[in-house]
Amino acid sequence: MERDPKTGEPTGILNEFSAENLVINVLPQPDFTVKQYKKTLLTWQKTAAEDGVTSVFVPVHYPTESLLKAFEELDNAGKLTVRYDLGLWADENKGTKQIGRLKELRDKYQGKSYKIDTIKIFADGVGENKLVWDQNILEKTVAALDKEGFRVYIHAIGNQGFYPSHNALDAFEYAAKLNGKRDSRHVITHLDWVKEDDVARFKDLGVIPTPQPSWFGKDWYTNVRGEGLKELNHMGSYLKPEYRLLHRVIFLQQILLKEICIPLQD
């Protein structure tokens, strides 16, 4: 939540989901309806079938259960034609206190063609060199989620000289030391900027790197020169043989190199 630098008063500009959801939660209709979500999912599944897509990961950022109920109803009716892995959003202001609620939702929403076993965390935002989580809280939360058997999926874009993926890797390393290693298949996604020395840590920790080639054609990096290029888009490293088991999870738009936008159906 941005404030006026002189008065300290809120400006009305909200950054990231924790601030946005403060407003969303008090709206008369804080989310799309279950009916709208169901129609949209059914429409999108036609596109998925045309492109041969059979399994997807869906981050759920809203604090309501409308989308989850839509999946539940469609699954009960036998109308889900794609396997869905749903990822619930973790609030950086709640840390480990929210894990009980996340477990409740995981237990409540498990179907034949959809499941909740993933939690999405934002290490940074978009376009701002600022960490979203306090590092100590991040590490404890990731470790607690790992202990409960959740797969943790961390958003980390970064910028030249700013590497939230490093903080995410530190959190996964902390979890492994505390809980021991397992086939957790934790993920760090986007990964525009990664310290060169951190690339090998993905393999060592068993963390899946999920970059987005569909972003590479944008003009975000036109001013990067010289040594800076060593820490930008390590796609070649992730595709080396020793990483062959670590790059299975990629976004649909990366496979197709196009963005599919299905308008919400009334």
Rank of each mutant, 00 (worst) to 15 (best):
residue 84 Y to N: 04
residue 125 G to S: 12
residue 116 I to V: 13
residue 131 L to W: 04
residue 91 D to F: 06
residue 46 K to M: 12
residue 43 T to S: 15
residue 20 E to A: 14
residue 212 Q to Y: 08
residue 106 R to H: 09
residue 80 L to M: 10
residue 155 H to Y: 06
residue 188 I to T: 02
residue 69 K to W: 06
residue 172 F to A: 01
residue 141 T to H: 01
residue 176 A to F: 01
residue 173 E to R: 08
residue 222 T to D: 13
residue 187 V to I: 15
residue 183 D to Q: 12
residue 266 D to L: 12
residue 252 L to Y: 08
residue 98 Q to A: 14
residue 15 N to W: 07
residue 37 Y to R: 00
residue 30 P to K: 05
residue 152 V to Q: 01
residue 174 Y to C: 04
residue 87 G to F: 01
residue 129 N to S: 15
residue 241 P to Q: 08
residue 259 E to T: 15
residue 148 E to N: 11
residue 13 I to Q: 09
residue 216 F to N: 05
residue 22 L to V: 09
residue 229 L to I: 11
residue 16 E to R: 10
residue 234 H to A: 08
residue 73 E to P: 04
residue 72 E to G: 04
residue 210 T to Y: 00
residue 101 R to A: 13
residue 40 T to P: 02
residue 107 D to C: 08
residue 13 I to T: 12
residue 157 I to M: 05
residue 262 I to E: 06
residue 170 D to H: 08
residue 51 D to Q: 15
residue 104 E to M: 11
residue 77 A to Y: 11
residue 166 H to I: 05
residue 144 A to S: 14
residue 125 G to V: 05
residue 148 E to A: 14
residue 44 W to L: 13
residue 12 G to V: 08
residue 142 V to C: 03
residue 169 L to K: 00
residue 144 A to M: 09
residue 237 S to C: 08
residue 32 F to H: 09
residue 266 D to I: 07
residue 156 A to C: 14
residue 6 K to D: 12
residue 89 W to V: 03
residue 222 T to P: 03
residue 21 N to W: 04
residue 181 K to V: 14
residue 70 A to I: 03
residue 112 K to Q: 15
residue 115 K to V: 05
residue 57 F to V: 07
residue 97 K to W: 11
residue 24 I to S: 03
residue 228 G to L: 11
residue 249 V to Q: 05
residue 157 I to T: 03
residue 66 S to P: 02
residue 225 R to W: 08
residue 41 L to M: 14
residue 199 V to P: 00
residue 10 P to W: 09
residue 200 A to C: 07
residue 266 D to F: 07
residue 176 A to E: 02
residue 59 P to D: 10
residue 205 L to P: 00
residue 252 L to E: 03
residue 256 L to W: 13
residue 135 Q to Y: 09
residue 193 W to R: 00
residue 60 V to A: 02
residue 208 I to H: 01
residue 67 L to W: 01
residue 201 R to D: 03
residue 162 F to S: 05
residue 43 T to Q: 15
residue 49 A to M: 12
residue 57 F to D: 04
residue 191 L to H: 01
residue 11 T to S: 14
residue 103 K to W: 03
residue 145 L to S: 00
residue 60 V to H: 02
residue 80 L to N: 00
residue 25 N to F: 05
residue 221 Y to L: 07
residue 266 D to H: 12
residue 26 V to D: 12
residue 85 D to E: 15
residue 55 S to V: 09
residue 205 L to K: 02
residue 182 R to A: 15
residue 69 K to D: 06
residue 206 G to V: 05
residue 91 D to H: 10
residue 26 V to F: 13
residue 261 C to N: 14
residue 51 D to P: 00
residue 116 I to N: 01
residue 30 P to R: 05
residue 193 W to K: 01
residue 256 L to F: 09
residue 31 D to H: 07
residue 228 G to F: 11
